[in-house]
């Protein structure tokens, strides 16, 4: 039987960029494909939203193996954005999600600014898509491979391009990289360019070397570090952004594996959270974490999740 959240007296609903969700727990892009695999374990319509793996304009085979390596309290991955391309994705994956009734946030990526716009344009008027997450942690192939998310102007260019190609009321979330000196500068820049919310954070760039062969473990040499090892970095980023952008909706993510981890993100300023790496060893994690948050709040006689959002910013805490 598929797991669904337990009944609770705590109001677990949340509001993100004019969207209301009964659960504040979403999947994290790249860790649940387009929901089919997870739906064997949980009712994917019972979680806040399915955030799909980043899709690009054309089909991609991804990188050669090895693509993943275990690290202390985390995982390194360099999949290479394997995917079917936006047209097949709409025809197969999105149609399946729509038939299930899952609320879907589509993550998109591109090799250049124009490609982001084209992918976004294909998503116009597709039923079931409640938002678009823009994965700006891609190298800009027209600017020496510099990652869009690491430069405020490049990041803004992508968001402008996507904004121009979707309907005015389609919520856009820019997914930010922590691999920058000042994440708040990137956050301000993408919000000015038209992002309605922020997904914080993407993986950190890392490397693992095999000490027997002396070679990098991943075929792509470097990869994205995720899992509990990055959680304090993610919480710090959410906190810093909330401080400078008090009203911007934030989806927090990075190493969340239980209810207490999730509560850190809400207190730092996240309106919702995405659960990723932990899903690989517990496919029920999205529902379990929802239940654990509700249980902790109930124990503390807190009636609503909204009471703890931004709680770490109270003036009486130094």
């Amino acid at each position: 039987m598929k797991r669904v959240p337990q009944k609770t007296s705590v109001d677990m609903s949340t509001s993100v960029a004019k969207l209301n969700f009964l659960s504040p727990v979403f999947t994290a892009s790249g860790c649940a494909a387009a929901g089919k695999e997870l739906d064997q374990f949980i009712d994917i319509t019972s979680i806040g939203a399915v955030v799909t793996k980043s899709v690009m304009l054309n089909p991609r085979s991804g990188r050669a193996t090895p693509r993943m390596a275990e690290t202390p309290s985390g995982m390194l991955n360099g999949i290479g954005l394997q995917g079917p391309g936006i047209d097949d994705f709409i025809k197969n994956d999105l149609q399946w999600l729509q038939q299930k009734g899952a609320r879907t946030i589509v993550s998109i990526a591109g090799n250049n600014v124009e490609e982001f716009g084209k992918v976004a344009d294909r998503l116009r008027d597709i039923p079931g898509v409640v938002g678009i997450e823009v994965n700006i942690s891609c190298p800009n192939m027209e600017n020496r491979g510099q990652v869009f998310a690491c430069d405020p102007l490049s990041a803004a260019d992508v968001i402008y391009s996507v904004r121009r190609n979707v309907s005015a009321n389609m919520p856009l979330f820019a997914k930010l990289s922590p691999d920058v000196t000042d994440i708040t500068a990137i956050a301000k820049s993408v919000v000015k360019a038209g992002a309605d919310g922020l997904s914080v954070i993407n993986t950190l760039l890392g490397m693992v070397i095999d000490t027997d062969t002396f070679l990098p473990r991943l075929s792509g040499k470097t990869g994205g570090l995720s899992g509990p090892a990055i959680r304090p970095v993610a919480v710090r980023c959410v906190y810093q952004i909330r401080k400078v952008l008090p009203d911007i909706p934030i989806i927090g993510m990075g190493g969340i594996r239980n209810g207490r981890d999730a509560i850190e993100f809400f207190a730092a300023g996240a309106n919702a959270i995405s659960v990723g790496t932990t899903v690989f060893n517990d496919p029920e994690a999205c529902v379990r974490i929802h239940d654990e948050v509700a249980e902790i709040l109930q124990e503390k006689s807190i009636k609503s999740l909204s009471e703890i959002i931004n709680a770490a910013h109270r003036e009486d805490i130094s």
């Binding site: 054309n58 089909p59 991609r60 085979s61 991804g62 290479g80 394997q82 995917g83 079917p84 391309g85 090799n111 891609c138 190298p139 192939m141 491979g145």
Partner: peptide, 10 residues
């Protein structure tokens, strides 16, 4: 391979 890397893309 279907979707194999294209020169110039990442």
């Amino acid at each position: 391979t279907y979707g194999a890397p294209v020169p110039g893309n990442h």
